[in-house]
Design a protein around this nucleic acid. Structure first.
Length: 460
RNA sequence: GUGCCCAUAGCUCAAUGGCAGAGCGCCUGACUGUGGCUCAGGAGGUUGAGGGUUCGAGACCGUCUGGGCACCCCA
């Protein structure tokens, strides 16, 4: 009997090799796309000081702290560190700490695991990968950065081949301005945004009820808010924009409704960002102006994004973010505005594997298995493998003893595309047999041409 | 933290309170120079744990542990 029975740890996903390869391919696409837009990588420690992590009023119950298993007498096993639960807080600390050495606008990407001490459920993990990009300015950041972000997302998910998706976009300033104009009390605006954000989940009627009963809006104002938020449904982007411009013209700024400035500015921002997205090549059918997108987090001040898979709305938002006025107010007095987005890659890839949208392939990164039918020729097998690797062909040599049948079985189970077979007969003839494992077709190749020929075959 | 549901072989699941099983997977052989297919065989279980009811519990009852789902929050 073994001393310890291995058990899965709920919320800490781990993958089989064929799944891990799919996951890593997605990671590669994310990284390549980020770099194609000039985002530069950074990595921060898995832990931060507790004071840093709790600075934004993060939910302390969901933060894992670091402690030692034992402490010397009189010492505490506690440490001042805890695991980061997102990458935004560490980024804020990092930028504030290094701002005099960084070049602004600072465009960084960060792909790391984060930890959340919550009860796991489907698609909710306690350890997960986040992939973040942000553009951070000193004092200001161009609105065109807001347009670049959805372009990155578009190209990234297209390459990942995960089916049709829609980046939904809105502007918080516009919403805030509208709320002012509609007479929503200032203290309620955050609550209204949060409630509105649940529209998709609980439906229009429930939102209406919550606005009146929980937040205390008057029936009239609640109705006005709801009608506005729903007014983008089923309309083209340009229709919504022209409706909004008409409303800007109607809204006369008064002391009673100071929001008209914000409203007008929000509409203008949205318009500018959408024009930028179009120039960057985001097709019309992959984005959507949706006035009901609010995002629950309160630090967003302008553009906000959410991305959904059309065929899998149950996944929720697979990628979301927005613009904020001040990234690091807890760590520096200097104003550092920015815009960014975060992809929850663990949720995305694991759920897509589960749903069969992404299909696991081979359980090996190698394309070729060199079989070793005749151990007395082991040195030849190793040389062939070295030649293949020198040409960049991922190659494994079957190093154990085994019948050829067993070696081919190993090859097909692991999903190699080609097996090289050579025994006494082939060596005598100066040849090597290349077997395509999918088609079972074998071809004899002169020994010295093996590497170039396979390079071609692996390509196609 | 609150509520609901679940726990039998590696996986998916059967078994009226009466001998713990099937399919898939895995291993071996048919096959010492050819994988997938087929056939034959094999391994694998303290029925999550420990109590109670009973002549008898995988099943019924309560306790613990683990897991899933919803709320909360968010990726």
């Amino acid at each position: 009997m073994p001393a310890i029975t291995p058990r899965p740890m709920s919320g800490f996903p781990e993958l089989l090799p064929e799944q891990q390869l799919v996951f890593n391919r997605c990671l590669d696409i994310v990284r390549r796309t980020f770099e194609r837009y000039g985002f530069t990588p950074i990595e921060t420690p898995a832990v931060e000081r507790k004071e840093v992590l709790t600075s934004k009023g993060g939910n302390e119950k969901e933060i894992y702290a670091l402690s030692r298993l034992a402490a010397a007498p009189g010492e505490s096993a506690e440490t001042e560190f805890a695991l980061h639960f997102d990458l935004t807080v560490p980024l804020a600390r990092y930028v504030a700490q290094h701002k005099d050495k960084l070049v602004f606008p600072f465009r960084r990407y960060q792909i790391q695991k984060v930890w959340r001490g919550e009860r796991p459920q489907s698609g909710r993990y306690r350890e997960l990968y986040q992939c973040d990009i942000d553009v951070i300015g000193r004092g200001s950041v161009s609105l065109m950065a807001d347009a670049e972000i959805p372009s990155v997302i578009y190209h990234l998910f297209r390459e990942m081949d995960i089916g049709k998706f829609v980046v939904r976009i809105n502007n918080r300033r516009l919403l805030q301005g509208f709320f002012d104009l509609a007479g929503v009390p200032a203290v309620c605006k955050t609550d209204v945004l949060r409630t509105v954000d649940a529209w998709e989940k609980i439906g229009r009627d429930a939102v209406a009820q919550a606005l009146v009963n929980k937040i205390g809006l008057s029936e009239t104002i609640a109705k006005q808010v709801l009608e506005f938020l729903a007014s983008s449904r089923g309309k083209s982007t340009d229709e919504v924009l022209s409706d909004l411009r008409a409303q800007v013209a109607d809204a006369q700024p008064t002391d009673a409704s100071p929001g008209s400035d914000d409203f007008a500015r929000g509409v203008h921002e949205l318009q500018t960002v959408i024009a930028g997205m179009r120039s960057l090549g985001v097709p019309e059918e992959y984005f959507e102006l949706d006035l009901s997108i609010a995002r629950g987090l309160d630090y967003y001040t302008g553009t906000v994004y959410e991305t959904r898979l059309v065929a899998h709305p149950d996944l929720g938002s697979i990628c979301s973010g927005g613009r904020y006025d001040d990234l690091a107010s807890y760590f520096t007095d200097e104003k550092l505005p920015g815009v960014g987005i975060s992809i929850g890659l663990s949720r995305l890839v694991l759920r897509l594997l589960d749903a069969g949208v992404l299909k696991p392939g081979p359980a090996t990164p190698a394309a070729v298995l060199v079989t070793t039918m005749d151990p007395s020729h082991m040195q030849d097998y190793l040389k062939i493998a070295a030649e293949l690797r020198a040409r960049g062909i991922a190659t494994e040599v079957f190093l154990e003893k085994g019948r050829l049948g067993d070696q081919l079985k190993y090859a097909s189970r692991k999903g190699f595309r080609f097996a090289l077979i050579a025994g006494e007969a082939e060596f005598a003839a100066g040849q090597v047999k290349v077997k395509n494992l999918a088609t079972a077709v074998e071809s004899a190749v002169p020994r010295e041409e093996v590497a170039p020929r396979l390079a071609e075959m692996v390509q196609s």
